[in-house]
């Protein structure tokens, strides 16, 4: 697949919310709750939580999917790794896509499989790598393989960085642009990741946003972070409201891309769904401004 895939979802998406399990149970338990949800609200879930044979959790997701657009956000494909997730994992993702009918499917630009004394370790985090030409060729092959297996376009998320590991052949925006150009994949730009990385690496976050290939951006993530007092690093923790600087980066990116689906991620210290809806309204306001612009 080379740049021929339509990167726009079949429905126009505005502001969405990362749907975590407590809120899924709340929604599934109360069909009427949807009446209080804004029109066009969409949800994103971590695909791996639902890549199971059956049961109430999957049934709850399918029920929500009948009322709201759903995005499947994977955390396990290891798209920048020399070893990707097993074929069985890819088949499960395909099956989940068939059942849910997601409007977007995404995963991360990272490697995750480590040899361990007791076997393989699928690291539940997103490990960094030098952005070499060899790494780009590897990522292109991996993304193309997954898109072929799924029969649909992937969005690839930019990672958070905690140190400059060096030995890069190209900056991240060039790597992402080349990956999108070669595979037809879209980019999921997490502006919180950019903020965190810029702080940790001593870079200018606004400049980083300005370098991104705007036409390839298919989704934007916003999230909270926290400082680590001991190291001085910012941690991409998703356990706090979105910081003002991150809202600013989102607005800056939207001014370049035009309206794109914006997703509020919150994974820890989860507030009530109503609080997240209020925060998502800020994102909706940014989208309105981008639309008017």
């Amino acid at each position: 697949m080379h740049g021929t895939l339509d990167h726009r979802p079949s429905v126009r998406l505005g502001a969405g919310i990362g749907l975590r399990l407590p809120h899924l149970a709340e929604l599934a338990a109360n069909d009427g709750a949807s009446a209080a949800l804004p029109d066009g609200l969409w949800f994103e879930v971590h695909a791996e939580n639902f890549m199971v044979d059956g049961g109430p959790r999957l049934a709850a997701l399918l029920a929500v999917a009948r009322r709201h657009p759903i995005s499947l956000h994977g955390v396990g494909l290891a798209l920048a790794g020399t070893r990707m997730a097993p074929a069985a994992h890819v088949r499960r993702l395909r099956r989940l896509c068939d059942r849910v009918g997601p409007v977007l499917v995404s995963d991360h630009l990272a490697w995750q499989l480590v040899d361990h004394a007791h076997g393989r370790w699928h690291v539940p985090d997103f490990l960094p790598f030098p952005r070499t030409k060899a790494a780009l060729a590897l990522a292109i092959a991996n993304v193309a393989r997954i898109q072929d297996a799924l029969g649909r376009r992937l969005l690839i998320e930019n990672p958070s960085h905690y140190a400059d590991i060096g030995n890069h052949d190209m900056p991240e925006h060039a790597f992402l642009g080349a990956l999108a150009q070669a595979t037809g994949c879209g980019l999921l730009i997490d502006v919180n990741n950019i903020h965190v990385s810029a702080h940790n690496l001593g870079l200018d976050a606004g400049w980083l946003v300005d370098q991104l290939p705007a036409c390839a951006v298919g989704e934007i993530h916003i999230a909270g972070h926290r400082p680590d007092a001991e190291s001085g690093l910012l941690i991409d923790s998703h356990d706090a409201p979105v910081a003002p600087d991150v809202w600013g980066l989102a607005a800056r990116l939207l001014a370049r891309t035009g309206p794109r689906p914006v997703l509020l991620e919150r994974d820890a210290d989860l507030p009530p769904l109503a609080d997240l809806l209020l925060e998502a309204r800020v994102a909706a306001g940014l989208l309105d401004a981008a639309d008017a612009g």
């Binding site: 020399t82 490990l127 030098p130 060899a134 590991i165 060096g166 030995n167």
Partner: peptide, 20 residues
Amino acid sequence: STGPTQSPARFEAWYARLLL
């Protein structure tokens, strides 16, 4: 060291040792 430069496999092996 600052890690192997060109081979993703060698980099992963090097970084894995740090991670472990």
